[in-house]
């Protein structure tokens, strides 16, 4: 499975990549998680490639070949939707973080949807940031999105398995809110399915 995770530096894109990678590793797959470090993390566009399978050779996914896109932010989702293969799936957070450049026009959520619609992909827009804010910490948006992917059955993980991985990678202080974020995401994902 080839998965692209994107968002804005500081949203927890790398953390999500590590969590997903470890879930695949637990299932006995070969895994690669290609990350972006350094300067580009400073509020920049962040793209993480996650590959899992019997045997993985290349570290990255080429545009047009990904099975699933998880976007923690709308503009970045639209920017990298071209990584998806035909009939791939996109889960996009209903959140626009405007690039802080003077004098640029910021696309609306509708503009973003129009871009995504041009592609032959199945897409789901979710209020992950709102859910995270309601839980009390915007920084768990990433795990809400992971929950949504589980709820939609677009990632092959059991809830318990993700919780085990969260226990390893999330500081104790934030574990509880992350588990609640995961559950809220799963519910949101299931809601979409039942609609």
């Amino acid at each position: 499975m080839d998965l692209i995770i994107t968002g804005v530096g500081g949203q927890g894109v790398l953390t999500l990549g590590t969590i997903v990678g470890n879930c695949f590793l637990e299932m006995g797959y070969d895994v690669r998680v290609a990350e972006v470090h350094g300067l580009s993390q400073r509020g920049g566009s962040v793209l993480v490639h996650v590959r899992a399978g019997e045997k993985i050779f290349a570290p990255t996914i080429s545009a047009g070949y990904a099975d699933l896109l998880i976007a923690l932010e709308g503009i970045e989702g639209a920017r990298y939707v071209n990584y998806l293969k035909k009939n791939g799936d996109a889960i996009i957070n209903n959140e626009i973080i405007p690039p802080p450049l003077p004098g640029i026009s910021i696309p609306s959520l509708k503009n973003i949807k129009d871009v995504i619609k041009k592609y032959k992909v199945t897409y789901y827009f979710v209020d992950a940031s709102s859910i995270a804010r309601k839980l009390g910490n915007i920084r768990v948006t990433n795990v809400v999105m992971l929950g949504v992917a589980l709820g939609l059955k677009l990632l092959p993980f059991e809830r318990e398995q993700v919780v085990r991985v969260l226990r390893t990678y999330i500081p104790k202080k934030y574990l509880d809110i992350n588990i609640r974020a995961l559950d809220a995401g799963i519910v949101a994902g299931r809601d979409i399915v039942s609609r």
Binding site: V8, G64, L101, I104
Partner: peptide
């Protein structure tokens, strides 16, 4: 022939001062 990849016209997001 690889899949055709379109570049969307979106505002760039270069790294910025935090």
């Amino acid at each position: 022939i690889p899949p055709r990849v379109e570049e969307e016209n979106l505002p760039p997001r270069p790294p910025v001062f935090c």
